[in-house]
Design a protein around this nucleic acid. Structure first.
Length: 465
DNA sequence: TGGGGTTAT
DNA sequence: ATAACCC
């Protein structure tokens, strides 16, 4: 089934057709055991070196040259030309230049264009199915289950290409046309190809896709054939896939901390985790984490594709070698705030909470951040939609109170990062439940996610100081 | 390690 | 408010 893909869609020729003359090889009433939600079709879409692609679209002269995107002294991502010359993601600029003197670098500290393109991709995918979950700026999950069901019902048995997989099949496993699960995933691969083709035609972006029965497997399989190709995982190959991981740290959902704790228990491979005592694991990591990651080790992941919708927060941050005075901090905070106000203005919703985050210098330790947040005074919120200069000064005052609440400015200090975050976003005028206004405010009475945080906010009320 | 994001506790 | 996770 696997073929070299010239690029995107195109269905593989001469693969599989229906067996009986004019008859479908499965029966429609075979569709999924007992109408349960058990078998899903999920696609993970992963853009190729996203920031570099956006830069090459902005400036086509960069195409064909080894290109790196720089933030501070790091090359955070680079195109494939640069990768072939030895440049890696998150490589030091000096090491990268040493490896590859011809490397062209562009500054990518301002995420605006990346963010905008990222949401265009998500919106394009939402046209296929509204159930799209973002993961970072360059990855999306889409639950294709419903779309696949609809296409199965529409399927005409006299179309020879109707049952042809698009892209690679993991492990070259043959497709069984009598297996409804195979058929559904195959349809998923066709939709994935259409998605990638739409991304290229409408946005000029290439990327990979993985199709499988859950998010974990879809994500793992999407990276098998790397730039600009797609891979389908059939259920029988899922154990091969997860055992192809060399270490548990490669399992999405098992991060730095959990990896360290697992290693301390002598667990390093996926099989180690599969066979480790559940009881002991639960005792060591807590029942929630233990049960979740042990299921992951078997390739099981029942987490739903949760529609991301509009962002829950907006933040701007800046890192630096040293900030050690209040004036310096204030200037940086003003810069961050100015950018944020523009973004919030464009979004249309209003943040009801503001947070200030700092990172203190510490010579050798693991960096950790501290934050203080408070409700945004209502008189400031009301002025937010319009010209932002009225709100600058009172907002900066609020932020500097938060700052002095965290940092004793009478003592020497050394910060290496400042960040300002707007969250607790609400649609317009905070319509109250039960009022006419509430039911006339679309995002409140139906798909509301605003107000989600309000019950658990234990803020410092700056007005109380 | 940058400059973002999310959810759980 | 922090800690974990993701990119």
């Amino acid at each position: 089934m696997e073929r070299a893909e010239a690029w995107a869609a195109g269905s593989s020729p001469g693969a599989l057709g229906p067996e009986g003359p004019g008859g479908l090889p499965w029966s429609h009433d075979q569709v999924v055991p007992a109408g349960s939600s058990s078998s899903r079709v999920i696609v993970h879409v992963d853009l190729d070196c996203f920031y570099a692609q956006v830069e090459m679209i902005s400036n086509p002269e960069l195409k064909g040259k080894p290109l790196g995107v720089q933030q501070k002294y790091l090359v955070v991502t680079c195109n494939y030309e640069a990768r072939e010359l030895g440049v890696k993601k998150l490589m030091n600029v000096r090491d990268a230049k040493e490896k590859c003197p011809q490397l062209v670098l562009v500054n990518g500290e301002d995420l605006t264009r990346y963010r905008e393109m990222s949401y265009k991709v998500t919106e394009l995918l939402e046209e296929f199915s509204p159930v799209v979950e973002r993961l970072g700026f360059d990855e999306n999950f889409v639950d294709l289950t419903e779309m696949v069901e609809k296409r199965l019902e529409q399927l005409q048995s006299d179309e020879p290409s109707a049952l042809t997989v698009s892209g690679h099949v993991y492990g070259n496993q043959p497709i069984n046309l009598h297996d409804i699960l195979h058929i559904r995933l195959l349809i998923g691969s066709q939709i994935a190809a259409e998605m990638r083709e739409a991304m290229y035609n409408q946005l000029g972006l290439t990327g990979c896709a993985g199709v499988a029965s859950n998010k974990l497997l879809a994500k793992l399989v999407s990276g098998i054939f790397k730039p600009n190709q797609q891979t389908l995982l059939l259920p029988e190959s899922s154990q091969d896939l997860i055992h192809s991981l060399n270490h548990i740290k490669e399992m999405p959902g098992i991060g730095y901390k959990t990896t360290k704790r697992l290693e301390a228990l002598g667990i390093s491979s996926v099989r180690d985790l599969q066979t480790f005592s559940s009881k002991i694991l639960e005792r060591e990591l807590g029942i929630s984490v233990a049960q979740r990651i042990q299921k992951l080790s078997f390739g099981e992941d029942n987490s739903p594709v949760t529609p991301s919708g509009p962002p829950q927060s907006f933040s701007e941050e800046d890192s630096f070698k040293k900030c050690s005075s209040e004036v310096e901090a204030k200037n940086k905070i003003e810069e961050l705030l100015a950018s944020l106000l523009n973004r919030v203005c464009q979004d249309g919703r209003k943040p009801h909470t503001i947070r200030l985050i700092i990172r203190r210098y510490s010579s050798e330790k693991h960096y950790s951040r501290e934050s203080r947040q408070c409700p945004i005074p209502s008189h400031i919120i009301q002025k937010l939609g319009i010209g932002n200069y009225d709100v600058m000064t009172p907002m900066v005052d609020v932020l500097m109170k938060l700052f002095r609440n965290m940092v004793n400015v009478k003592m020497p200090f050394h910060l290496t990062l400042l960040s300002v975050c707007f969250c607790n976003l609400k649609a317009l005028n905070t319509a109250k439940k039960g009022t006419i206004d509430y039911y006339l405010t679309p995002s409140l009475s139906t798909t509301s996610r605003s107000g989600k945080h309000s019950f658990k906010m234990k803020d410092t009320h700056m007005e109380d100081f």
